[in-house]
Design a binder for these strands. Structure first.
Length: 194
DNA sequence: TGCCCGATTAACT
DNA sequence: GTTAATCGGGCAA
């Protein structure tokens, strides 16, 4: 006998990104039944110069200005897709970037989509993760508590590492990247020994 | 309008 | 270590 895992709903996301981001480490994310456990994320608050929402609303970032608990998907470098979860109250325009997963469910589909087999690299990076889960602009603005999304709270305590975010040029020293300490599925290790 | 840069990645040397 | 792929936003003109 076991309890069903707790689904993450709007209540979970209706908090500061700096609370939600570390709480997502160890949570389970599946899209269309394919996915795994979140091992790396980054927080982007609207007052943060590195956030897309910092300079105000545009067609691209409009979902960030809506209610929490929705997916914000954007095109990166004109090539890759990146997945974010919108947080805080409507209009706060803050989100958490999902950077890496420990692949668990639907490994064959992920390997096929990625064109490679190494589990450690299937979802180790925001663009790679979206390719493995077949996330595109079609997912932008979708609710996270309904299909095709399925999100569940972590079931065990985890050791969380924090450090500077990756690939940005503003607010580079803010330690708003969070990860599962020691995980082999991170896009990059944390300094000081993940 | 034109130009530069970016929450990236894989394939190079 | 470097580079190319490729597109939306921001800003100057």
């Amino acid at each position: 006998m076991h309890r069903p895992r707790k689904r993450l709903t709007q209540t979970f996301f209706n908090r500061s990104v700096h609370e939600v981001a570390p709480d997502l480490i160890g949570a389970t994310l599946r899209i269309g039944g394919v996915g795994g456990d979140i091992v790396e994320v980054e927080a982007y608050h609207h007052t943060d110069p590195a956030a897309h929402s910092y300079r105000g609303r545009t067609d691209r970032n409009a979902v960030m200005f809506g209610p929490p608990g929705y997916a914000y998907v954007y095109r990166s470098y004109g090539i890759h897709w990146c997945l974010n979860f919108v947080c805080e109250g409507e209009g706060s325009a803050s989100a958490v970037l999902i950077r890496a997963l420990h692949p668990v469910t639907g490994l064959a589909a992920m390997r096929r989509r990625r064109g490679m087999s190494d589990e450690r690299r299937l979802c180790a990076g925001p663009g790679r993760l979206c390719e493995a889960l077949a996330i595109t602009s079609a997912h932008n603005g979708l609710r996270l508590d309904r299909p095709p999304f399925a999100l569940y709270a972590r079931t065990k305590a985890v050791e969380i590492a924090a450090g500077p975010r990756i690939g940005i040029s503003k607010a580079v020293e803010q330690p708003w990247r969070y990860g599962l300490a020691g995980s082999p599925f991170l896009s990059r290790p944390f300094r000081g020994g993940d």
